[in-house]
Amino acid sequence: MNLSSFIDVFHSWPSLLNGLVMTVMLTLISSFLGVVLGTLCAWGSLRGPKALRWFIRGYVEFFRNTPFLGQIFFIFFGLPALGLRLDPVTAALVALTINLTAYACEIIRAGIEATPAGQFEAASSLGLKPAQAFFLVILPPAFQRVWPAMTSQLVIILLASALCSQISVAELSYEANMIASRTFRNFEAYIVVTLIYLGLAVLFRDMLSWVGRRFVYGDFATEAQR
């Protein structure tokens, strides 16, 4: 192997670019939906009616304790048997979102449980309704507490999106597969794509820490959080 053996890979830059765009899209959409739904699940699992709590508990346990690949296959190949046929990209988005929601729910729940009970009592004594107390008083500090853990989880989702290649979603890993089988440059193709993932992950982490400073910590960031 020498540098020239990478040239075949670089010649395929348009497909790499397409793959990159797809990976970024899958990550951003599922991250946004996963965090929003994870927050609602965390609320439901702590304050919802008993049946809802049990349902969320079961959902979280199931999706945190089964392989992501199996989850994608079930959604893409299994659901059509139940009459629901999804195209590969939609199936990938659904799988990533459902998986992330389960983890995000647990992360946010931990942040909420670490909030002193007195905060909720103070909000209640001021006449705030439970939902207002949750979203205005309990959630913001809970998010501050767990944002580093959430950042890691979102980077994991970026990397897990590689598995979507298995249901023929044309993201980065899928394009690497295609380039490798076209050029027989297996090693080079995967090296290049791995480095792109590394760059993406670092960039995504920096972006999330900016989001943290701008929206999660606000003015009241400790030095470490800045």
Partner: peptide, 10 residues
């Protein structure tokens, strides 16, 4: 008013 104030830290 509470013993531990319970102001909202954020």
């Amino acid at each position: 008013c509470f013993q531990h104030f319970n102001l909202f830290p954020h």
